[in-house]
Design a protein around this nucleic acid. Structure first.
Lengths: 224, 224
DNA sequence: ATTCGCGCAATGTTTCTGCAATGTTGGAAT
DNA sequence: ATTCCAACATTGCAGAAACATTGCGCGAAT
């Protein structure tokens, strides 16, 4: 359980840190909108606690921005501005709950638990080809619903081919998908991985096969 | 949009009825727990507004009853008992929000909108894998109903794995769940925690095991 | 003062993977 | 049709990652 605390008063921040730590919640603390923006970039939080008065502006501004970025973590606004207009505005901007300071920490935690009971369910992104399926978010291939274990490079090859299944994947694109920039290959390693993967798919009777498009690249499609 | 109002004070009820009607919300009004029980039976509501003091008892009692019946509608508790112990109790019984009377109707509507934005599903309070159980809200693992004591880091690892049990948890996601960004790890500490946790699970015969997905992450699933 | 958890690192183990040697194939040019 | 060559396929292998395990010492909590 990891949450982001956006709060510029250090006393408040450290008090919350102590209290939430006792509940085995990991906190990332930032003190400005700019830092918050950076913190959510890439990482995903179970929840976000947001102060309104921040050195670089009104905290509420951040909410629509995050929602526009598809960041669906529950947001609880914490603030000394505890009038109902503020609460209504915060909630309507996309916050999930709103607490006026001062508050009892236990209540904050209870409200956290309440918003966390409602799961932020992300629609699973699953590609199917033949009897193969690939869960993109979890990088998990499966065959007839049973998880398929593959070495990393073969997995990356399969992922790239499945994401563009039925279309030819240009050799160069495949190299980019499988190798990061800092690793350079100086031989036919890619071909070797394709070969091994192809053999496995055939052996497993996966109902999908890798075709070679000579001079261009590879293509995955259902057999028959 | 149709909501159930459980409230015995008629003034309050009719005031709410008027206010919500203006927002095209249809209200079914009942004045007792017994009637509420009957009303939810068969019909499904977008939300439930629940008073605490009712002629046939304490309104909060109804919440776990509804949840046990798989009625997942958001519940907002409205009450004159507006102390924080009551709020905590209400929320922990399964309410989604809690408002003290008197309140501004517009705020109630904003809070209604907020809870209606969230997914309608409830994630189970307790996740089970093998003989292991994990109370997500309280971050408490148990084995055969007996509480399991784990060091913080191992607990966080277990929490992350159980929340996504049966699915691969990408290594980086696991690091994110366990470490806040001010403590950066420079070695194989995560592996060490996984190793120790794995050993404990095996020693306790927990009926669940951590599998390694080489190059990707870890996966918790029931053994056999 | 003592215990416990943690990060770290040294060491051992397993599994991958890049490479290269060698075999195969498709099609362009004659 | 035949030849020839570049592109691709296959496979063993040794070095390299990735991971597992365990002990240690520091520091926080009790």
């Amino acid at each position: 359980m990891r949450i982001l605390l956006v709060e510029d008063e250090l006393d408040m921040a450290s008090a919350l840190n102590d209290a939430l730590s006792k509940h085995n919640i990991v906190i990332d603390h930032v003190a400005s909108i700019a830092d918050a923006r950076e913190a959510v970039h890439g990482r995903s939080y179970d929840a976000i606690l947001l102060d309104r008065q921040l050195p670089d502006g009104e905290g509420l501004r951040l909410i629509p921005e995050l929602r526009a970025d598809n960041i669906d973590s529950p947001i609880i606004v914490l603030t000394a501005h505890n009038d109902h207009e503020g609460r209504i505005r915060g909630l309507d901007l996309g916050a999930d709950d709103y607490m006026g300071k001062p508050f009892v920490v236990e209540e904050l935690i209870a409200r956290l638990r309440a918003v966390l009971r409602r799961p932020t369910l992300l629609s699973p992104d699953i590609i199917r080809v033949g009897r193969l399926a690939f869960d993109v978010a979890h990088m998990e291939p499966s065959l007839d619903g049973k998880q398929l274990l593959l070495p990393r490079r073969e997995l990356l090859v399969l992922a790239a081919l499945m994401k563009r299944s039925g279309r030819t994947v240009i050799r160069e694109a495949l190299v980019n998908a499988v190798y990061s920039f800092d690793v350079e290959i100086q031989s036919n390693s890619l071909d070797a991985h394709v070969s091994r993967l192809r053999k496995k798919l055939a052996g497993l009777n996966a109902g999908a096969a890798i075709h070679t498009i000579r001079g261009i690249g590879y293509l995955l499609k259902a057999s028959e």
